[in-house]
């Protein structure tokens, strides 16, 4: 079998391929903003903050090492511990509730109902609003003198008490109501997209097998939507750790320090109290908590892809 005919020209092997850094030069130049952002901001700034968290920087950053001193002080500060406790309560409650509400609403909207568009619009519109607007709106509704409490008392129930924003024990739930109001629509949309992505034939098969609607959701649909749930969880978690504006607008951390959050602690340390390194240490702890959420997720995603 002749694949190659006799060579009329000299086809001596050319020298090994040299590196060609100017290939696709336009693409490389065009990617420069991305490269700079990734390296300088996301890597550079993060590393910088972590390094300076081991110094005693006050008003200005300086490299005078203090070891773990800032961290010791941080974990000895009541305000930080309250912040973490608040974050944990807010985080766990909003994860559970947002997932529950988001999925339930999506499942209801997926029942081929009338006015689906209208309902969806209503559930999602708060997501278009800023946390500042959300916080201020709920601050007003929860205002004890004019809001829900006052209105119900005016209707005759004189002893009715609903004043979460001024109660140190309940204030975090006051913020939670607002946070869920703002963020559950997004999860509903994601869940709805996930539900719509499920093969119609699954429902037909369940109907032929005589499995009830609720049971089908629990036994068949939810397990199939595992990736969607994981994504939703990661999104909620990433949002929770960043919670800042909402608290600033709604309670400014009060009453006292009872609605403090880590982000507020960091901001106050860095920009108000001229205690930079303390802020750096606290923000490094925020980063660590993100990693605690992110690493198992990345592992799951990666393992899932390998299997899939």
């Amino acid at each position: 079998m002749t694949i190659v005919e006799s060579d009329g020209i000299d086809l001596a092997r050319a020298e090994r391929k040299p590196r060609r850094p100017f290939r696709n030069i336009s693409a490389k130049i065009a990617s420069l903003p991305m490269v700079l952002t990734a390296l300088v901001v996301f890597v550079g700034c993060t590393v910088w903050t972590v390094i300076y968290s081991f110094t005693d920087s006050k008003l200005l950053p300086r490299l005078s090492w203090e070891g773990l001193g800032q961290y010791e002080r941080l974990w000895g500060t009541r305000r930080w511990l309250v912040s973490l406790e608040n974050l944990a309560i807010y985080g766990i409650c909003s994860m559970v509730l947002i997932l529950l509400i988001g999925f339930t609403l999506a499942a209801l909207l997926d029942r081929k109902i009338r006015f689906e568009g209208a309902f969806r619009t209503v559930f999602l519109y708060p997501f278009a609003l800023s946390f500042i607007v959300t916080g201020l709106a709920w601050q007003w509704i929860l205002n004890p003198d004019f809001g829900i409490q006052a209105s119900i008392r005016a209707m005759g129930w004189e002893s009715f008490v609903f004043d979460p924003l001024n109660s140190p024990d309940l204030v975090i739930f006051g913020i939670l109501i607002a946070g869920i109001w703002q963020g559950s629509g997004l999860i509903m949309v994601i869940m709805l997209a996930g539900l719509r992505g499920i093969d119609e034939d699954i429902w037909k098969a369940a109907r032929v097998d005589g499995i009830g609607t609720v049971k089908t959701y629990v036994k068949v649909i939810i397990p199939m939507m595992r990736p969607v749930f994981v994504t939703a969880l990661v999104l909620i978690a990433a949002g929770i750790i960043k919670v800042y504006d909402l608290v600033v607008a709604q309670t400014a951390g009060g009453p006292g320090i009872s609605s403090q959050m880590p982000a507020l602690y960091v901001m106050d340390a860095m920009f108000k109290n001229q205690n930079l390194a303390q802020g750096f240490a606290a923000s490094t702890m925020m980063l660590v908590s993100v990693l605690i959420v992110l690493i198992p997720w990345a592992y799951l995603e990666f393992a899932g892809k390998k299997r899939g």
Partner: peptide, 28 residues
């Protein structure tokens, strides 16, 4: 137009979205 390392930068970029802003504010 993938080039050598482009996926690495992209991964960093996406992971960067999860870093709390507070970590990067002061250096910024």
């Amino acid at each position: 137009w993938k080039f050598k390392g482009s996926e690495v930068f992209f991964t960093i970029l996406i992971l960067g979205a999860f870093i709390p802003y507070q970590v990067m504010l002061y250096p910024m």
